[in-house]
């Protein structure tokens, strides 16, 4: 049984998540083979091979300098054929989820998305935005799996490196990379804040941010933050968003009010020194990462807390 592990190059190096895939492959058990895709990526292939992937295919072509869905689809399919893999592991990153299920459809394979574990013959993943877990079993001869970044410890070890070039026809591509853009400079920088009070969809209405959340942030001398649905609804600008597609914050205190705790939000704030969650649902996943919690209505708790903080400061 061969497991093909698709490495990803980010800012010139093989990203941490790719080494997590090797660790994940060891949980499944089988012969690991790696794949590196890029332009002038011999050094990265060498690094990936030596640091655990062992035998690595490398698709090195000027046309692969940037991610392109059809180019990457072709390369990964070719590597599956060359390796005879029965499992393909890809990190669940923006380029990973863009291509992985295409490979599955193209090769008539089973597809498992965003697995964080493999145990007793089943892949384990979150569903319902973190509220439930599911065990998934594949009966297919080939299974393509995306793996949640950060969920497994990166493989730390070495292997005998063997690099094999993979030649793939990349003519006539139908999707063209134009450029990558970085978001405009942020007016509201949460990355330096010591205290952040964030509101989520549970805050319910745009005006409630200024009426309920901001006064607490102000009283504590901190900043206001938000979860994604708040920003999507246009209640607050994007620079308030905390999470994988917003800001990654590390304050001394993070207060999550009316935020359920989906993985994409947790990625942005779990590095806080201390986390307090206020949520009316006792089963909300946010209580698993918080140190202190209140199960209750934020509209009752937060204004009282604001008053108490002001009183404490006045004293």
């Amino acid at each position: 049984m061969t497991i093909l592990v698709v490495g990803e190059i980010q800012k010139g190096a093989v990203r941490e998540a790719s080494y997590e895939l090797i660790a994940f492959a060891k949980k499944i058990g089988g012969e690991v083979k790696g794949l590196i895709i890029g332009s002038g990526c011999g050094a990265q292939a060498e690094a990936f091979a030596k640091k655990g992937a062992g035998s690595v295919y490398v698709a090195d072509d000027a046309a692969l300098a940037n991610y392109s869905v059809d180019a990457h689809t072709r390369v990964i399919k070719a590597a599956v054929a060359a390796s005879g893999a029965s499992t393909v592991l890809i990190s669940n990153t923006p380029s990973g989820w863009d291509v992985a299920s295409r490979i599955a459809a193209g090769l008539d394979a089973g597809f498992v998305s965003d697995a964080f574990n493999y145990a007793d013959g089943a892949y384990v993943r979150r569903v319902f935005n973190g509220k439930l877990d599911a065990r998934i079993v594949s009966s297919a001869a080939l299974t393509v799996v995306t793996v949640q970044p950060g969920a497994n410890k990166a493989f730390e070890g070495s292997a005998d490196a063997k690099i094999e070039k993979l030649a793939v026809d990349l003519s006539g591509l139908s999707a063209k990379f134009v450029e990558t853009k970085v978001a405009a400079a942020k007016g509201h920088d949460l990355t330096k804040a010591e205290i952040i009070v964030s509101g989520g969809r549970g805050v319910g209405a745009p005006e409630k941010f200024n009426e309920v959340i901001k006064p607490l942030a102000d009283a504590l001398g901190g900043q206001m933050g938000a979860s994604r649905p708040v920003v999507d609804a246009g209640w607050l600008p994007h620079e308030y968003q905390v999470g994988s597609s917003g800001q990654i914050v590390t304050p001394k205190l993070y207060m999550a009010c009316g935020i359920s705790g989906a993985i994409q939000h947790l990625v942005g704030m779990k590095g806080a020194n201390f986390i307090i969650a206020i949520n009316k649902d006792p089963d909300a996943p946010i209580f698993e990462v918080a140190q202190l919690g209140v199960v209750g209505d934020l509209f009752e708790i937060v204004p009282k807390l604001t008053a108490a903080v002001k009183a404490a400061k006045g004293a």
């Binding site: 089973g110 597809f111 877990d133 594949s138 299974t143 209580f287 202190l292 708790i301 009282k304």
Partner: peptide
């Protein structure tokens, strides 16, 4: 080709310490 065999509430870890009591008591905490 793939099937959900089981769905369940995520196992609870140590989790947060939950403050109990009236709103005033919780706020004091």
């Amino acid at each position: 080709k793939v099937k959900i065999t089981k769905i369940y509430a995520p196992p609870k870890g140590t989790g947060a310490q939950i403050l109990k009591g009236s709103a005033d008591e919780v706020v004091a905490g």
